[in-house]
Every structure is written in C-alpha cells, then in structure tokens.
Design a protein around this nucleic acid. Structure first.
Lengths: 223, 223, 223, 223
DNA sequence: AATGAATGAGAATTCATTCAT
DNA sequence: TATGAATGAATTCTCATTCAT
C-alpha cells in the first residue's frame, strides 16, 4: 500500500495535489458563505484536512481568498477564450459561441462564478475583483472590436452591457432554474440563454457596425 | 444654546431623526464592508452615536440589515416608478425614461444599490434579497410587457437581460467614472448611459414586438 | 381630581408611597430572577414607573437590594416575634406558635423569603444576608433558651437545626405544594407543617431540657 | 524540559485533565458568585487557561453550569450512599453514618454544595436543581423508610426535615466554624454535627416507628 | 508533513447608570 | 418631580492564527 492510497491516518500527498484540494474546498465554502462568513474551520472540514494544513498550503485567509479569485477567473477566461475560437468572418457567431461557452462554464464552475461575481466586490478585495472583472469585459470588448471592426474604445461600453446582461441572465438561471428554462424545456439551457441574449443585443450590435448609432444615443424621442 | 448648536455631549433627537441617522450610517457601512464585514461598532461610529443607540433604533444586526434592504429597495423602485410615468404611446420612450431614472438614482443612492446588488446574495438574507431583486425585475418586465404588447411571461427574460445590462453599465460607471463618460464628456452621464443601453437593446426589443424573434432563439446561424 | 387619583401622565406621589412601590417591585423581581438576573429595567417596569425614578427612590442596584433584604428580614422577624407571644409556661407551645407564624408568613411574604433564603447568599451581599439569617436563628435560640431553661450557648446549635429544618419543609412546600399537603388535605398547610416539625424535633428538645443529652453527642452506638 | 515542569507558554494536556481543570474552576467560581454573577472570564482565569479553552471543554455557560450541577450532585450522592453502608439492624446507626458522611463531604466539596444548595433555584436551572435536590431528599427518605419500617410516603416529610436541618447546621458550620465547634473543640466537627443532629431528631424518628405520631401532628397542646 | 490543542483579538448584545428636558 | 434618550463598561461567544508533538 503506497502513501497515496492509504486511507487511514495522515496522508502524505504531493504539494500540488494538496493545494488543489485546499483551493477546491475554499472556493466551495467561500461561494456558499462569502468571505467573512466563511471560516477556516469550514474550509479545513470541507477539504477533509486539518486547519494547519490549510494554512500551510493556502496561506492566510486573505491569501487563500485571493488565490481562489485568481484561479477561478483564469478558468472562466480560458473557457470562453477557447470557445470563441479563431477569427471568423461572421462576428456575431463568435459572440454567440463565446456566450454559449460562458453559460456552459457556469454549469461546471458555478462556485467560482459566485465567488467572483456575488461576493467580495467590496472589502479588502475590491481591487482584485475589479481587475479580474475588467479582464473579462476586455475579453468581450476584444471579441466585439475584432468582429465588428470598430475601435476598442467604442466597443468597451457595449462589452460592459453585454457582460452585464449575461450576468443578469446567469443569475436568473441560477436562482430560478425552472422559470429560466420555461421557454424551451428540452434544449440545453446554456444554449437557450446564449441565443436569447444574442437575439436581444444582436440587432443593436449590428447597427453599431453600420455606424448608424455609433457613439450617439441612437433612437430618437420621436422614433 | 439650542439643540441644533449643541455639538458636545448627549444630543436628544426625535426617534424619527435618530432612526434615519442610524439607517443612513448602516447603509453606508454595509455597502462598504458587506453584511459580515460590517461591525455594529462601525455603524455606531459612522452615525456618530453609541452602540446601544444603534440597537435601540435599529434592532439587532439582522434586523438592521433587513431594514436597510427594504428601505433602499423601496427607494429605488419608487424612483424608477415615478420616472417611468404614465402609459405612453411610444414604449421605448418609457423604457428610456425609466433607465434614465435608474441611472440617476444610482448617483444619489449608490450605497443602497451596492447593498442590494453587490452583497449578501448568500447567507440569511438570500431570500430577502432575492425577493427584492425580483420586484425590480418585475417592474421592468411590466414596463416592457405593457409597452410592447407581449405576454408577461415572454417579457421576463428580456427584463432580466435589461436589468443585468443596466447593472453592468452602472458598475462600470461607478468603478471607473472617467472611462464611462469618455464618449460624451459634456452630457449628464446618467442620460448617456441610459441612451446607450436603449441603443443596444432597443432594436432587439422592437424585433420582439414584431414577433420576429418571439420565444425562439431569433437570429440564425447564417444571419 | 387630585394628584393622587390621577391615572394619566406623571403621578406625584409622596416619597414614602413611591419608595414602598419601588421596594415592592424590587422584591418581586429579585425573588424571581435573583440579584444578577434582575435588571433595573424590570424593576421599573414592574413598579410601573420610569427607571430614573427607581434610582431616585431606591438608590443604586446594590442599595436597592440591600434595602429589600433588610425590609423583608424585619418583616419576617416581626411576624414571628409577634406570634410567639409572651412567655408561657409550656415552652414547646411557644415554639409551635412561632413555627406556625413562620410558615404562615411564608404564605404572604413568599417573595421576601425567596430573596433572603434562595438568593444572594454569595456575592457582595453574603455578609448582609448572613447577619440577617443570624438574627433569625438568634430569635429562635432565645425562644428555646427561655422556654427550655438552658444556656443560650447550648440552645444555639438546636436553633440552627430547627431553623434549617423549617427551611427544608418550607422549600418542599413551596416547590411541591401538592405533595406537602398530601398528609392532611383539609387542614391549613402552614399549621400542618409546623406541627410536623414539632413532632420531629420536640422529643429531642425535651430530652435536652432533662439534661440527658446536654452538650454530648446523645444517643450511643448501642442505643 | 518535560511537560510537567514547563510552566510557561502553552501546555498540552489531555482532554480529561483539561475538562476536570475547567469544571473545578467553574464550580469554584459559580459557588462564589452564583450563576449570573460568574463570568466566563472569571472561570478561565481561575482555571489558568484562556477563555476559548473553557468553551472547548465546557461548552456554553449554561452547559458548563449544568455539568457542574450534575457532577457535584453525583459526588455528594455517592459519598453519602457509600457511607450509609449495607442495611443494618439498627436504623439510626445508618442515619448517623450517612449524616457523618454528609458533613464530611461538605468539608471537601464545599463549593459543590454551595452551587447545589445556595444558587440558582430560580432561572433556567430551577428544574435541574430541583430534580437533583429531590434525589438527595429521596436518598434520605429511602434510608429512613428502610430503617424505620414506615411507608415511603410517610418518610418523605421527615426526609425533608432531616435534610433541611442538616443544611442548617452545615451552613452554620461553614459560616461560623469557631462557634460551631465550640461545644467539642477536640472532636472531628463533622462527627459532632452529625451526632448532634441525631440527638435532636432521633427521638422524634423513633417515635415515628412506634406509630405514636404517625401521620398526625403528634404532640398535643396539653402534652 | 500533519495535527490536536491552545490563544489573542474582536464581535454582538445587554445593563447599570445618568443627562437634558 | 419625572422621564425619554443616551452611553461606558461589561459579558458571552467565535475566529484567524500558531505552538508542541
């Protein structure tokens, strides 16, 4: 019986495995209780290890939380980036692919999403969170700027709008899954939400390309 | 020496004034630190009063937080409701008016917004927060359902999208005001953001009215 | 309508009446909650007056409690003293009269008894309580010394025994009234308990008079 | 440096030893200050440990107090039970043995006695305390019922009397040791008190056996 | 490497006490 | 005189963090 397989007593695992184990538990607990509401005891219990080990592998509570933020942000970014795929002649298709990837990622990385978007946007981590969110928005802006052939500065507000709308739908879905899939009960919810979003903002984005609305307010009072 | 001018020692104020003072401080602190991160000491210090007074007028920490949530939600809802005005023949005009009111409200009620939307979506107040958020979304859904003549069930996903997008822009604006007003330096930022949002989602919503996209995913792969 | 009869607003009562009102409430609350468990708020509420008035008429919590102790002890002593009556040729008859008075007093002054005997025999009032209890025992010792014609020094241990036994029965009665009166359901419980006590200790006390047991241990191992 | 000799810094002791240490301190403090008057700080200080350790080993204040009550009651009951010994043909001899054991127990378990008999007969522990006291009285009643061949129901009032008398003497002894041992300066005080008590109540109890007094009030007015 | 045991610091809540009216 | 309003000082209990093994 190797040390790896031993089920009794102290397990000697490799540092990488231990660290991952601890981070996984931390993300789970932080997402459920929030930063202040989570206790290191709870993290240790969730990881199935002792508290000193959490400190050994995750550092202080602040460091541990920051590590969770970073790891989960990277994960989300990579998921979407991969899905968007290479430049394509049809820009909205890339957007849709990215959105589908985003909503799919929520299915498998819900805890990480919660930590990033529903916790700790205040407190000692506001800066950290802000910069991670900015990266997500910038990814979206790049996507649109490339696809729609507009300057990045112009794309930025649209990116914020798009990401916010995606969050809103994601929240809805996670909070009230029944209602969110009522429209298309048999399809993959992540795809339905992505398509819905494209339907709502797509026309507006296309108008952007045409220069119709550009940087002005667009629709006039008298329409 | 009047009560107004007395600056030292104990101030005797009316319960209403004190309660408001305490609630204001509580909203500020909760918005900055989150529920768990905020201490009653900090609330008392922010209000410039002693801790027992906070308890006398705000009740326990839980009750105080719940009171903050309710007051701020009512405020936001009322602001928007008032601004949307009476039914109008041009639906998007109502939406724009409501959005302008929303972004204006953020200017003056930023802390309340933060408490509602960036805090405590977990923990003992998840239910409370969820129901308040739901009311906001439902307000938006009603607005759209009425204006666009679609069933409320259809309007709901659009409402979530719209509210999420508004949040995204609001966050951007509050986090990075310089960038957010770069597009139109001389206009009222709240109006600019509202108009931008209408420009992005307006076309999609109009398409909804036409039944073009209805409940399906809308835009096709081949556009 | 005089100030005395006014039922609304602030009542202006004579200091003696107010003081009695406050002390009555204090005895009630202290007997129910104990010294530390009782709050000045509770005393004020029970008295139907404001807290500052409690302080005005009862002094600090410590002073108020001491005043309760003293008043209730005096009351109990006076009740028994009066009942014992003048010297009588039959000593045990005086003892029985006193015991009947004692148990009767418990009926009407139960709260005072509780304060004296079931609270605060420790803490800052141990001395006060001890000296009051000593006076009660000394009263009993005098009673027995006079009646039984033994030196006071000899009577003292018997007095402690007698008073302790009375307390034990009183506790039983107050804690479990049903059981305590099971023996004689139709008689006055106070009288039944007094007679019972005389039946148990009477023979022993009479033997004391005969000098049989005097200061020695009395009954021998071989009886 | 062994654990035994280490006097500074953190001591690692076994849970059993710690728990006993904490309970001992708690009994001491509760006996001196009463339940409400005792603070967990005081318990920790008395035990020479930190407050969290008190919570770790004693639970909440309520639980700690209940544990004290139970442990001390068991101890007292066991002491007396052991001492009473097996059934014996001379009943009063058993009573005397039990009383001697009782007074001896007070010497070594004074604090426990105080907690049980001079504290907290009100408040959240009234029930707990009452049931423990009842057990003590029932032990005495069993002792007498067995020895004196009377029904248990008849023995109960006598048991209350006896236990109360013992308490009275015990209080006297503990409060004023000099006076209490004045009668027999060279003997063991606990034995002296036990013998005194037997002398006082013995004749009455024997009369009980004879059926002379039975359940009636006994001695007549005219003797 | 891993942990059971221990603690300093701080958080929520209450209470005796006192102003200001 | 009488009181509503206010507070300093505990008190119970928890938590992030570390030592001794």
């Amino acid at each position: 019986m190797t040390a790896e397989t031993s089920r009794t007593g102290r397990q000697r695992l490799s540092p990488e495995v231990r660290r991952r184990q601890v981070l996984d538990a931390a993300v789970a607990v932080f997402s459920e209780e929030g930063f202040h509401g989570a206790s290191m005891d709870a993290v240790a219990a969730r990881a199935g290890v002792s508290k000193p080990l959490v400190y050994a592998h995750g550092g202080s509570k602040d460091e541990l939380f920051a590590a969770c933020l970073r790891r989960e942000a990277e994960r989300l970014l990579r998921s979407v980036e991969t899905a968007a795929g290479e430049p394509d002649e049809i820009p909205l298709v890339r957007v849709r692919r990215a959105l589908r990837a985003f909503f799919h990622a929520l299915t498998t990385q819900r805890a990480g999403w919660t930590v990033l978007y529903r916790q700790a946007s205040t407190g000692p981590f506001a800066g950290e969170v802000d910069s991670l969110r900015r990266r997500i928005v910038e990814q979206a802006a790049d996507l649109m700027a490339g696809g729609l052939a507009v300057p990045r500065r112009v794309a930025l507000p649209y990116a914020h709008t798009l990401v916010g709308a995606a969050e809103g739908l994601a929240d809805w879905w996670l909070t009230d899954p029944e209602a969110a899939r009522a429209g298309a009960p048999h399809a993959e919810p992540a795809d339905v939400l992505a398509d819905l979003l494209v339907a709502v903002v797509g026309p507006g984005l296309e108008a952007l390309t045409d220069g119709t609305i550009a940087e002005s307010s667009g629709i006039s009072e008298k329409r």
